[in-house]
Design a protein around this nucleic acid. Structure first.
Length: 431
RNA sequence: CGGGGCGUGGCUCAGUUUGGCUAGAGCGCUUGGUUCGGGACUAAGAGGUCGACAGUUCAAAUCUGUCCGCCCCGACCA
């Protein structure tokens, strides 16, 4: 892709609206723009990142024999009244009445909808287990949207639902999802913790949260440095510039239950939450099946959510330096950026375009900075965007018949004979 | 919703305390010249209902009131 043909509005200064690092960098690198509080537009670079995250999620979900569906955002209120969650969820749900007087809401989550769907088509134990998932926009009228994509009123979620004939089946699927999630977040370049958590409004029994340690994270986790166990913490402790402040309820468990060590508090971003739902939804909505002995049973369910759009910023929180973003390889919007330092020089220009084509032929997506800008501007923007590998084409490389590469993460600069360019790029990307 | 902060060209901000001439600067944008490997210099330009409405006043970006928007802290959550 040519820079001049796409839309990458980078900013030299941080817009007033941003406070957290990831929010600032998302705006500065031209990934997103705010339309209103809690609603963001994804620009070309942001969308590419979002798509890469989705690709990883799909690969790992499909590997668990989960099948992708896409459910409506428009939902009838009746279904929510049947489970009683219309009251539990309350004001967070965006509701309205259509022209025919139907009571409608914009889906904040989809347990009711998926259960209703499965109810009509699963009637035998022979059809179980079943895992369905979707990547879809959720709507929540959040009390306080904040930190850009971290807490938005319209956001992208991956939600998976497992349907089993017994508890043992649920345990198997739950474990499979747990492992899949570990792979997903590792591939996203994240360091993360898992905690046992409250299931809250979702209901059911066991649940785990995936928490990404980040300076500006909203959630506090108690982490045991000894046995590496972690625990959700309901009392937030915010380190502010004015000093540390503690608010909320007292009397929480301060030492590790397993080894007695004192917990460390970590600020984190919750990127996923998985639940063993049991029969809460199936029983209330009548999603039953006939077991091997011909007895009617409610389907045993689990649900598994990932905050997809939120992940963009969670990843940035853990992968940045003073110059900008440092994308993990699988997430990067482009693998390579070619800095054509002087596009008015025909030789430099031709060499840059030629490399761009050659990379394309090899299936390597590169961004070619073909703007008529000074070198300094291109260096700064390339660092800001965080594309893993920079190929710098200027007078120097032309003269010596060499190519100059810079690895964004390490800052390492590599000079190689021009003939080895493609080989070296492939080595660096695969290494 | 409660507490705090902010709102002035696309972006960052000055000016508001103490009302006073055609509302400023930097960045960005357009055109020319000089530059050209880490966000250049220079000249000439374009671009603003000073968040909105109402009020006070000879006179309002500036004072008063109401409303709206955005950010931060709390309850909520992927």
């Amino acid at each position: 892709m040519l820079w001049t043909k796409t839309f990458i509005p980078t900013l030299k200064e941080t817009p007033q609206e941003a406070e957290s690092i990831s929010h600032k960098l998302s705006l500065r690198a031209g990934l997103i723009r705010m339309l209103m509080a809690g609603a963001y537009s994804y620009l070309p670079l942001g969308l590419k990142v979002l798509n890469n995250i989705q690709r990883i999620i799909r690969e790992e979900m499909n590997a668990c024999n989960a099948s992708e569906v896409l459910l409506p955002a428009l939902q009838p209120m009746e279904l929510w009244q049947k489970t009683g969650r219309d009251k539990d969820i309350g004001e967070v749900m965006i509701r309205f009445t259509d022209r025919r007087g139907r009571k409608i809401c914009l889906g904040p989550t989809h347990e009711e909808i998926i259960t209703d769907l499965v109810k009509n088509h699963v009637s035998s134990y022979k059809q179980l287990p079943l895992i369905l998932y979707q990547i879809q926009t959720k709507f929540r009228d959040e009390i306080r949207p904040r930190f850009g994509l971290i807490r938005a009123c319209e956001f992208l979620m991956k939600d998976a639902y497992s349907f089993d004939k017994d508890r043992a089946g649920l345990d198997i699927n739950y474990k499979a999802m747990f492992k899949a999630y570990n792979r997903i977040f590792t591939r996203c370049g994240l360091k993360f913790l898992t905690t046992e958590a409250d299931s809250g409004v979702m209901g059911g029994g066991v649940s785990h949260e995936y928490m990404v340690p980040a300076k500006d994270g909203e959630d506090i986790v108690l982490f045991c440095p000894e046995c590496k166990s972690a625990k959700a913490f309901s009392r937030p402790a915010i380190e502010s510039e004015a000093g540390s402040r503690i608010a909320g309820k007292e009397g929480n468990q301060e030492t590790c239950l397993k080894c007695g060590r004192s917990y460390e508090k970590k600020n984190t971003i919750e990127v996923a939450h998985i639940f063993k739902l049991g029969t809460k939804y199936s029983a209330r909505l009548g999603a039953n099946f006939l077991d091997a002995s011909g007895k009617l049973q409610p389907i045993i369910m689990g649900c598994y959510g990932i905050g997809v759009s939120r992940l963009i910023q969670a990843i940035i929180e853990q992968n940045n330096d003073k110059d900008g973003i440092i994308w993990p390889k699988e997430i990067a919007p482009y693998k390579v950026i070619i800095l054509s330092l002087d596009v008015t020089d025909e030789k430099i220009r031709n060499l840059s375009f030629k490399l761009h084509e050659e990379l394309k032929e090899r299936g390597i997506e590169a961004l070619l900075d073909d703007r008529d800008e000074r070198a300094g501007v291109k260096f700064k923007d390339a660092d800001l965007l965080g594309i893993p590998l920079q190929v710098i084409i200027g007078k120097g490389s032309l003269k010596d018949n060499t190519v100059e590469l810079k690895v964004r993460g390490s800052g390492e600069k590599i000079i190689k004979p021009k003939a080895d360019t493609l080989k070296e790029i492939e080595n660096l990307l695969n290494g």
